[in-house]
Design a protein around this nucleic acid. Sequence first.
DNA 1: TCCTAAACAATAGTATTACTATCATTAAAT
DNA 2: ATTTAATGATAGTAATACTATTGTTTAGGA
Lengths: 225, 225
Amino acid sequence: MALLRLELNSNLFLRDPQETDLGRKIIDQSIRMIDELGLEAFTFKKLSKAIDSTEASIYRYFENKHRLLVYLIAWYWNWLEYRIEFETHNVASPTDRLAIALRLVTEHKSNDATFPSVDESALQRIVTNESDKTYLTKQVDSDNKEGLFRGFKTLCKRIADMVEEINPSYAYSHALVSTVLQAAHQQVFFAEHLPSLTEHKVVKGDVHQQNYEFLLELIQKASKA
Amino acid sequence: MALLRLELNSNLFLRDPQETDLGRKIIDQSIRMIDELGLEAFTFKKLSKAIDSTEASIYRYFENKHRLLVYLIAWYWNWLEYRIEFETHNVASPTDRLAIALRLVTEHKSNDATFPSVDESALQRIVTNESDKTYLTKQVDSDNKEGLFRGFKTLCKRIADMVEEINPSYAYSHALVSTVLQAAHQQVFFAEHLPSLTEHKVVKGDVHQQNYEFLLELIQKASKA
DNA sequence: TCCTAAACAATAGTATTACTATCATTAAAT
DNA sequence: ATTTAATGATAGTAATACTATTGTTTAGGA
C-alpha cells in the first residue's frame, strides 16, 4: 500500500503538521482527545501535556483550536474525495458512480493504512459530532474566503455532477447533495442520541448501512425526472 | 389578537423567565445579542450590562448560556408547532396539511404580535446559526433525558405523521422529516455563506421561498410509493 | 567539524470567561 | 408592620486562550 499525503490548503495551518514529528503527534493526539473529550473540553494545554510538549509549541502549528478542528475536518473531506476519485475511476455509469460515492460517504470508516498517523475511525466520529461547528461561527465568511471549506465544497460539487449527469434537468443537484452529505452524519448522531428522530436503529446492526439505504433511495427518487 | 404563553419544560430554566419583568428582559435582550454577537462572543456579563442588571441575577434564571440557548431554541420549536396546529386545524387532506406545515417551517418569520417580548425574526436567525450547538455536546444524552429537546422531537413526529398518512408504506418518515427540518435552515445558511453548496440565491428574491419549493418537492418525491 | 538558524521547551504573565458566595436593599404579599 | 422573595452590589476563584521572552537542542550548510 502506497503511503500518501493529502495536499491541504496552507491557510489551514501556520506550520504544516505533516512535515514534522511534533506536527504528526499533534494531529494524532488531537484526534484522540477531541473524540474523547469533545471540542469544548479539549484544550491546547491538555493536548500539550499528553504529547509531552508545550502550549507555545502547538500555537506555532495552529492559531487556535478552532483552526485545528477545521484542519482535521478538511483532511477528512479531502481524504473522502480522494477515495471517491479512486473508486469511481473507470466506472462509466453515473448511477453506479453515485452509488459508490454515497457508500464511501456513509459507510463506517476503519483505519486506512495509507495514512498511518490518522485514526480515521475516530475522525469520522469527530466529523459527526463537531464538523458543523467549523462553519457555524461569525467568521464563516472570512474563513471561507481563505478557502478553509474547499474540501467539503469540491466533494459536494463532484457528487452533484454525478446527479446532473443522471438527470440534467434536475434543478437542485447541489442543494440535494449538500442536504444528503449533512444527513450522512446527522442521522447517525440522531440514531445514537435522539432516536425518535430517525428510523435507523443502532441495535439493528450497522446504522451506517441503514443510512446508506435511506439516502440512496432519497437521492435517486428526488433527482428522478 | 390573543396574548399567549407557551408552556415549556421546566427543566429548561431555574426560574421561569416568562413570569417576571427581569426574566422577559433576559429573553428579549439575549435574542438580540446572540443574533448580533453569535453565541461564542455572547456572555452573561455583557447581557447583564445591557439590561442594567447583574451576572448573579441572570444565573438565577439560567444555569449557563448553553441552557439559555436551549431554552430559546425550544421556545422556537414550540411556537412553530403551535402555529402548525393552528393552521392545519380542520384541514382534512394530509397532503395539504404537509404543505402548510412545511411552509410554516421554511418561511421567513416576521414578528408575531401574540408574543410581544420575542423577536421571532432574530430568533429564526439564531436557529439557523446556533441551533445545532444545542445537541452537539457531550451532555446530549443527559440533556435529552431531561426533555430539553422535546419541542423539536414532537414537531418532527407531528410532520412525520402527515407523511405516514399520505403513504403508510414509506419506511423512513422520521428520518426524512428530520433531514428536511435540518435542511430548512441549513440551506438558508449555505445560500448566505457557502453559496456553492446550493442553488438557492439570496439575490433572486426570497431564499426561504426557494427552499420551500425545493423541500416540498423533495419530501413529496421521497415519500411517494 | 564548526557554525548558524530553526525548532522546540520552559516559564511567566495577561485579559477574559464562567462561574460561586455573601450581604445589602427593595418591593410585594400577609 | 413584618416577613420573604427577588434583585443588586461586590468580591473572589479556577480555568481558558492566548502572548512574550529566554534558553536549549538539533540538523544542515559552509
